Amino acid sequence: KLVNKEVDLDLTKIDGNAYSIMGYFSREARRQGWEQHEIDLVLEESQKGDYNHLVAAILLYCESPGEASEDFKSSEYENNEE
């Protein structure tokens, strides 16, 4: 992990496109006290791969009720195409 923080965030409640996910993460992280450089680090990492990498990278920093972020590793998504 690049940042030792988590955002209380449930990605299942938003539109699944990449820009929506990044925007929602950014807004919630900022609202929950993250510094802008911390948000930028996560977003930069999330954009280093395909859509599945983006989702997996964001989920590493999410604490979602009912779903543990460790259930979503980027390796699980690498061979799946949507």
Rank of each mutant, 00 (worst) to 15 (best):
L2S: 11
V3S: 14
V3D: 09
K5L: 14
K5F: 07
K5C: 07
E6D: 12
E6I: 12
V7D: 01
V7H: 01
D8S: 06
D8H: 12
D8K: 13
D8E: 14
L9H: 01
L9F: 06
L9M: 09
D10W: 12
D10K: 10
L11G: 02
T12Q: 08
T12F: 07
T12Y: 06
K13R: 12
I14T: 12
I14M: 00
D15E: 11
G16W: 08
A18R: 14
A18C: 05
Y19L: 09
Y19R: 12
S20W: 02
I21T: 05
I21L: 15
M22K: 12
M22Q: 09
M22P: 00
Y24H: 12
F25D: 08
S26I: 00
S26R: 14
R27I: 05
R30Y: 06
R31V: 09
R31Y: 02
Q32M: 05
Q32T: 02
Q32G: 04
Q32C: 03
G33Y: 03
G33E: 08
G33R: 05
W34K: 04
E35T: 04
E35L: 11
E35C: 03
E35M: 11
Q36I: 03
H37N: 13
H37A: 11
H37C: 02
H37S: 14
E38D: 14
E38Y: 10
E38P: 10
I39L: 06
I39K: 05
D40R: 15
L41A: 14
L41C: 03
L41M: 15
V42C: 02
L43R: 10
L43W: 10
L43H: 07
E44I: 15
E44S: 08
E45A: 14
S46R: 09
S46V: 03
S46F: 03
S46I: 10
Q47M: 12
K48N: 09
K48G: 00
D50F: 13
Y51C: 03
Y51E: 06
Y51S: 01
Y51M: 06
Y51R: 04
N52K: 03
H53I: 05
L54P: 00
L54A: 03
L54R: 04
L54T: 12
V55G: 01
A56N: 04
A57T: 15
A57N: 04
I58F: 00
I58C: 03
L59I: 05
L59R: 13
L60E: 13
L60V: 00
L60P: 00
L60C: 08
C62W: 05
C62G: 00
C62I: 10
E63N: 11
E63D: 12
S64F: 03
P65G: 02
G66D: 10
G66K: 04
G66F: 05
G66P: 03
G66Q: 10
S69H: 15
E70I: 05
D71W: 09
F72W: 15
F72D: 01
K73V: 07
K73Q: 15
S75L: 07
S75G: 03
S75R: 11
E76M: 09
E76P: 01
Y77G: 11
Y77M: 13
Y77F: 15
N79C: 06
N79Y: 14
N79K: 12
N80H: 11
E81G: 04
E81D: 12
E81L: 09
E82W: 10
